[in-house]
Design a binder for these strands. Structure first.
Length: 539
RNA sequence: GGCGCUAUCGUCUAGGGGUUAGGACGUGAGAUUCUCAAUCUUAAAACCCGGGUUCGAUUCCCGGUAGCGCUACCA
């Protein structure tokens, strides 16, 4: 944190500056997280959200809203931004065009910038020529020497013109918290355009067009008093172009921190093509925000010692250190995210996991639409408490919440015929001792007293074999059929669940019986019903 | 093409002029359990290549290679 200390006089101010052109991606989310961590770990630190929507064609308001929601879900909040305002607003670039124009005029008046009247065609042929001669394809400065009065006259006459910044004649250097000192020769920068020429319908007062990104970021960062620019490393090559703007403005250059790219398993830049990489998709699949935050922090950062991996957001705020961030790109590993998610799923308060799991079951059609509602009728409360036990039983089996309904198939999708036909069960069902076990077991279950309970669901019987009673039955089968161990348990398990593997009987049997007593969209079959159905297929 | 950035187990990483190169995910094995999941134990697994500097380089320097980024009146 030493790098933050020296700016103690003025508090740390960082910003996250996304373009609302799509869903929030893991790469951007990590950038947002690192910014947030730096702001929160520094006394008086301020986290600014700035929406870079100058690309009118691709920017959409709904993406901005989505973005903020995704960030909030992760626990990342802002002190200043379009929603909360602040003294350095407005925070949407589309609302700041007048500011950019003013500064451009100032730069022009001071001779730091000049008007360029070159046509697109001319520029393009310059570029081709430069490429052919293997030179850097930068602007050759054709309009640099036009006298200001002459330029002003041509502009007033309505001749289309762009504004270019005069690049200084010295190497451009800046400090990067993750990469150290970075230096570029000025020749590679060139006199870049900072304000486009006016396009029909996009004209600003004074006949200028929409300003260029590399210029507006600097104006914004200067005006918003940003002390640390933390962003993706796709901006390192842009940085010298921006540093030149700071110099022209006579403003101090902030600290930079360029975060490495997140790659997919094929070592390509992570994109939609690589499946679910948007923050929304992680939320939808039932990844906990604390797992995602923890994982993202570990991508490119490790604490001193490098052995600790589990960090809450609060712990990250305490431990995180920008200068320990690695400059090398990292491959996104879904398995490790899942590992963290499994960890946090076990840690999480049961009620929370149940609430989060519920929609998946409603969607699967296993639970009624209103099951999530707070208004708890008596039945609803019963369903909920049963469901809570189901979730608790199944959570150790999943990486993420959306896998839960599939794991719950043993409750809702019992199918004896399919179980008997399943090749996975062939060995168990084909064992010599199987028949004896099954016959004895069927008889025992049938002999159980049936307790009719029509209070919950008229016309249904609730047998209510307890876990203890079930254990006794198994012991009786063991004694009478003379079979023990796997040969005893596997066939019985197959009858009960359709599979020879699954949760402990102690927990499973009561859930089966209690579930059967409930009125659900997909009826859970009781122990006795399962026995009847199974014996019908395999007598 | 030019410029820049990067390079430790399959993956995320720690470390650093002399180390048995550490941890984690994943994988294999074992324990536990009727079984699966969970849990515990355990094993295999890495310093990109070539030159320097040095008594000694994985570590420092240079070059190569590879990957990525930027090369716009995109952001």
């Amino acid at each position: 944190m030493s790098h933050l200390q020296k700016t103690e006089s003025s508090p740390v101010r960082v910003r996250f500056a996304p373009s609302p052109t799509g869903h929030l991606h893991v790469g951007n989310a990590r950038t947002a997280l690192f910014n947030w961590l730096v702001a929160r770990q520094s006394p008086g630190g301020v986290n600014v959200l700035r929406v870079e929507d100058t690309d009118m064609e691709r920017s959409e308001a709904r993406f901005e809203a989505q973005l903020v929601e995704d960030l909030r879900w992760m626990g990342i909040d802002f002190d200043e931004g379009p929603e909360q305002g602040g003294e350095y607003g407005p925070y949407r670039q589309s609302d700041r065009l007048e500011v950019y124009r003013e500064y451009a005029e100032r730069l022009l008046a001071e001779g730091k910038a000049y008007l360029c009247f070159c046509s697109d065609e001319l520029l393009e042929s310059d570029r081709q020529a430069a490429m052919a001669e293997q030179r850097q394809p930068v602007y050759i400065g054709r309009c640099r020497a036009i006298a200001p009065q002459e330029a002003a006259r041509r502009r007033a006459a309505g001749e289309p013109c762009a504004v270019r910044l005069r690049v200084p004649n010295h190497p451009i250097r800046f400090h990067d918290l993750v990469r150290g000192e970075v230096e570029f020769p000025s020749e590679i920068v060139g006199d870049n355009v900072i304000v486009r020429s006016a396009k029909p319908g996009e004209s600003l007062p004074g006949g200028l067009g929409i300003p260029i990104y590399n210029y507006v970021v600097v104006i914004d960062d200067v005006l918003m008093k940003i002390t640390h620019v933390i962003r993706g490393d796709d901006h390192v090559s842009n940085t010298p172009k921006q540093v030149v703007v700071y110099e022209a403005l006579g403003m101090p250059v902030p600290e930079f921190a360029h975060l490495s790219t997140i790659l997919s398993a094929d070592r390509e830049r992570l994109s939609k093509r690589h499946g679910a990489t948007s923050i929304a998709s992680f939320r939808e699949m039932g990844v906990l925000p604390e797992a995602l935050v923890n994982y993202l922090a570990l991508l490119g950062w490790a604490p001193t010692g490098g052995t600790r991996e589990i960090f809450s957001a609060a712990e990250l705020v305490k431990e995180f250190d920008l200068s320990r961030v690695t400059p090398s790109p990292a491959v996104f590993d879904m398995e490790k995210l899942y590992w963290l998610n499994r960890h946090y799923l076990k840690q999480a308060a049961p009620e929370r996991v149940v609430a989060l799991a519920l929609p998946y079951f409603v969607q699967a059609g296993y639970l009624p639409q209103g099951a999530g509602e707070e208004v708890s009728t008596e039945t609803n409360a019963e369903v909920r408490s049963w469901f809570a036990r189901v979730v608790a039983l199944l959570v150790p089996y999943v990486d993420k919440l959306d896998q839960l309904p599939e794991k719950a198939a043993l409750f809702f999708r019992y199918d004896a015929a399919a179980a008997v036909a399943n090749p996975d069960n062939a060995e168990v069902l084909g064992a010599a001792s199987c028949s004896a076990v099954l016959q004895t077991f069927y008889a025992k279950v049938r002999a159980e007293k049936t307790e009719v309970d029509t209070s919950v669901l008229p016309g249904r019987t609730h047998h209510g074999i307890s876990a203890e009673r079930f254990k006794e039955i198994i012991n009786e089968v063991k004694a009478e059929a003379g079979v023990k161990g796997k040969e005893l348990f596997h066939p019985i398990r197959t009858v009960m669940t359709g599979s020879h593997s699954g949760p402990d009987f102690d927990k499973l049997i009561p859930l089966l019986e209690d579930g059967a007593a409930l009125s659900l969209p997909v009826q859970v079959k009781s122990v006795r019903e399962r026995v009847e159905e199974f014996s019908g297929v395999k007598g």
